[in-house]
Design a protein around this nucleic acid. Sequence first.
DNA 1: CGGAGGGTTGAGAGTCGTCAACGCATGTGG
DNA 2: CCACATGCGTTGACGACTCTCAACCCTCCG
Lengths: 239, 239
Amino acid sequence: MLESLFLNLGQHDSLSDDEQSLLGNLMAGERSFAAGQDIVASGSRPAYSTLILDGLAARYKVLADGGRQFTSLQVPGDFVDLYAFLLKTMDHGVIALSPCRVILADHSKLRSITERAPHLTRLLWLDTLIDGAIHREWIVAMGRRSKVSHLAHLFCELFVRLQVVKHTNGMSFHLPVSQAELADVLGLSVVHMNRVISALRNSGVIAWANHTVTILDWQKLQQIAEFDPTYLSMTREPR
Amino acid sequence: MLESLFLNLGQHDSLSDDEQSLLGNLMAGERSFAAGQDIVASGSRPAYSTLILDGLAARYKVLADGGRQFTSLQVPGDFVDLYAFLLKTMDHGVIALSPCRVILADHSKLRSITERAPHLTRLLWLDTLIDGAIHREWIVAMGRRSKVSHLAHLFCELFVRLQVVKHTNGMSFHLPVSQAELADVLGLSVVHMNRVISALRNSGVIAWANHTVTILDWQKLQQIAEFDPTYLSMTREPR
DNA sequence: CGGAGGGTTGAGAGTCGTCAACGCATGTGG
DNA sequence: CCACATGCGTTGACGACTCTCAACCCTCCG
């Protein structure tokens, strides 16, 4: 059941059997959320962190004028709020974009891992660091890429991340979001988001129907996006 | 000499004398960089992490068309590349925006801290988590705030962060950057950056001369920025 | 059959980028 | 001391990008 977590953490360094069982012991209490439901509320102080087993979720903030901005997309095998273990207070919310199955990790148990399993601690720390690296890449995309390039970059990133946890199907992956939700990722209006998507579709590098993205020309998509996966740290080495 | 580090880490939870001496032992090898010099090169695999003692630095990425985007600003007491300890390969560069005095932390020593000092490890981890929280706030600012609001938010954030390490002077702080560099923070052209700055100046909430920002109306600045410092985790509690 | 929720398209206005010019301060060499 | 170059900030004009408002389409579902 924790396969995607093992795939995710294990891609960076090997996980010992002991560590796998520590993780198995850590995760307890499965829950389900419907699309549109909050998995973690902004301002709350959860006593556990949440791992996605299945589904797509996103972190978000809402501004006074009602504008919403997603700050990350979370796929199976991702801890959506591991940092709450130390940050304590959630400064943003986490919403289920599709039906989500999650499992919880008590902060008290996480704390005991930091006391007794330094290598596993470093891997969990690393997981949050990669989160940060993705944030930085998003900042670059928002600040200096064209909107088409930004979208292409997002698709590259999602494809690679989903591939790691075996949630791709050939060159396709499931992306259960509306264009309005995607607009809240790129920081665009719905209308313009639609035009950006059309532009990328018309260039023939991707197809998108039935909530499924198909990459028709990976080479060219990478090129449009200037995608370099270094920031995802997908090399296996001692950490 | 590590006063700003102690102020920075110590604001979140108390640092024991033992931990302070561990940190003192960790940091070794002072270096200086001139404004414009790279402190850490993109693509490198440093064997140490860098703490800023004095000066202003920034993380950045450069795109193929020459466009540059800063992904963070680093002030005294900040680890600019603590994450390199686990990420291994730098996926971006770090540049000194003003003359910088830094001190280094060997990754081997950091590793031994994770093996033997769990609480200090959590505080270092926390430091990188706050980095991530700042990134998320920047993403929101880039995506959904007006440019004036974004700039106001940046000034609020810098003021609060500099206050923690005692680098403010009343309602003023030193900001040794050109408008072109600031444009690379907000993702704007130099010309438009100039107009955004003028707008904020003309609204009478800030003054900016001689590389020094003075907040004339903190209340109104916060309001324009919709600034809520929760994400900076400035409460002291067990971590 | 009617309503609701997406997706798509057009038109007009506001924001932002580019090109170009000018002002001002500093510094350098004659 | 002056002439000139350089770096940075400022301003205007115009075109490109993006937003808002509005309409229309389609599918799904009660």
